[in-house]
């Protein structure tokens, strides 16, 4: 690592270069990011006896209740519905929704550190994503238990979940940079994001199945979160690899990457003044 640092103001080339260096240096500190993420979890659940399992038991209770009520509301076989809803709610709640709301706080919560030590901003994005990966993994125990109880057979096709998770990982980092920067500047954005999460929850097939839309199902891909959740959920529900879903997921992801790159390149040098 070169010890020469050169910071020019305002030139477009310098901004682009600095943003790139920030990401590279951030990746090199991945061990620190992992420790920070782990300590975050330890601190968050320090006071509670159940620790991180507290969330798990809450969502387990929610899954069980929803499974019983909605399977009768939707007139569906609980053997088909409960595994679906168990997996969906965890992927949504501890995956997508958690990342969206945590991304807003990504830089704001690190304001002490940012003002006292020069560290890559990307480190904070990495820390947030690592933290959420740990939380998601802990909570995946619920669908696993449900799958075992209901003897759901998961075949080799489930391995297609791996590229899905990789896409989630990259998108998670991009969303952290994007929302982290915007929320540092405009403080009312986190509330807007949280309302958005609540609304989009109902228009995304999470507690209801895509097939229930019948002939309207074709419109579902215009909700970006549907293909994005489906790349992970589909393989685990024995739907195998779905090319159309992946194309939409990749297009939406690229839009996220472009937006996040554009914002991060512009905002990075100003972040320390905003938070």
């Amino acid at each position: 690592m070169s010890l020469l640092t050169k910071i020019n103001s305002n030139t477009a080339h310098s901004r682009y270069y600095q943003a790139l260096m920030d990401i590279i240096k951030g990746f090199k500190l991945w061990r620190l990011a992992l420790s920070l993420g782990w300590f975050d979890i330890k601190l968050r659940y320090k006071g509670s006896a159940l620790g991180p399992l507290w969330i798990t038991s809450t969502s387990a209770a929610m899954t069980a209740t929803m499974g019983v009520i909605y399977s009768s509301l939707f007139k569906m076989d609980i053997h088909e519905y409960l595994p679906f809803v168990a997996l969906s709610t965890v992927l949504w709640g501890q995956g997508i929704a958690l990342t969206l709301s945590d991304a807003c706080q990504c830089f704001l919560q690190a304001n002490d550190t940012i003002h006292s030590i020069k560290l890559p901003f990307f480190l904070q994005a990495l820390r947030t994503v690592f933290r959420n990966i740990i939380i998601l993994s802990l909570n995946l125990i619920i669908p696993i238990i449900v799958f075992i109880l209901f003897k759901v057979h998961v075949g080799w096709n489930a391995l297609f979940v791996l590229p899905g998770f990789i896409l989630w990982f990259i998108n998670g980092l991009a969303v952290c940079l994007l929302l982290g920067c915007i929320c540092a500047r405009y403080r009312d954005i986190p509330q807007i994001i949280n309302s958005f999460i609540q609304i989009i929850f109902y228009v995304t097939p999470i507690i209801w199945l895509p097939q229930q839309l019948k002939h309207h199902i074709a419109y579902l891909v215009y909700n970006p979160l549907y293909p994005l959740i489906e790349v992970v959920r589909g393989p685990l529900l024995n739907n195998g690899f779905n090319g159309t879903i992946w194309i939409y997921a990749l297009v939406y992801s690229m839009l996220i990457w472009l937006a996040s790159g554009y914002i991060f390149i512009r905002a990075r040098g100003r972040l320390a003044f905003w938070i």
């Binding site: 010890l3 020469l4 640092t5 050169k6 910071i7 020019n8 103001s9 305002n10 600095q18 002490d112 550190t113 940012i114 003002h115 006292s116 030590i117 020069k118 040098g269 100003r270 320390a272 003044f273």
Partner: peptide
């Protein structure tokens, strides 16, 4: 930590800063 609005700054060497007691 603070990047300039105009002009530039260049430095060479490992920097450690004791800027506040809790130092991050």
């Amino acid at each position: 930590i603070y990047e300039p609005n105009s002009g530039h700054i260049q430095s060479h060497g490992h920097i450690e800063a004791l800027l506040s007691t809790n130092a991050g």
